[in-house]
């Protein structure tokens, strides 16, 4: 499955880039992320609880940042697995200047396997979009000066 998503974030590119590669921020913003531990240069170990209301699974995985070109772009690869199956995703993140803020374009290829592929494939597209939407909404909040003050 391929996803092409565009988000606007209320901060300059440098800040957005830094936030998007900061494990502490990621842990706060990735929906269902219970743990995000940096275990190498640009490599993180994550524990996630993801899915829909009724169908939620626990996944462990590794995220890697590659081809890092701050503040313009990087490639994020995610390799997660859990009892219901596995998720592998590669996403090219491009950060462009847009007015005061930043426009992030992600082009992601997502592959799933196991029970989730057999039973959940029709849900995948929506699940991935929702996760991305939630992530960027949270990130946007994180980057908004107002929320920092709260």
């Amino acid at each position: 499955m391929h996803l092409h998503l565009i988000y606007q974030l209320p901060a300059p590119r440098e800040r957005v880039f830094a936030a998007m590669t900061d494990p502490a921020v990621l842990q706060r913003c990735i929906p269902g992320c219970e743990q995000m531990i940096k275990d190498g240069e640009d490599s993180y170990e994550a524990h996630l609880q993801v899915g829909f209301a009724g169908l939620k699974g626990k996944y462990r995985g590794r995220a890697r940042v590659e081809d890092r070109r701050p503040p313009e772009s990087y490639t994020l690869t995610v390799d997660g697995k859990g009892a219901p199956g596995f998720v592998r995703a590669t996403s090219r993140m491009c950060l462009g200047e847009k007015g005061e803020g930043t426009e992030v374009i992600c082009d992601a290829d997502v592959q799933i396997g196991g029970v989730i592929a057999a039973v959940g494939s029709r849900l995948l597209d929506a699940a991935a979009r929702k996760m991305a939407d939630d992530f960027f909404r949270a990130l946007s909040r994180e980057l908004t000066p107002m929320s920092a003050a709260q």
Partner: peptide, 14 residues
């Protein structure tokens, strides 16, 4: 009838 099939496949683990 939605939840138990998902739980049996372990897609849901409440």
């Amino acid at each position: 009838h939605s939840l138990l099939p998902a739980m049996k496949l372990r897609l849901a683990q409440p």
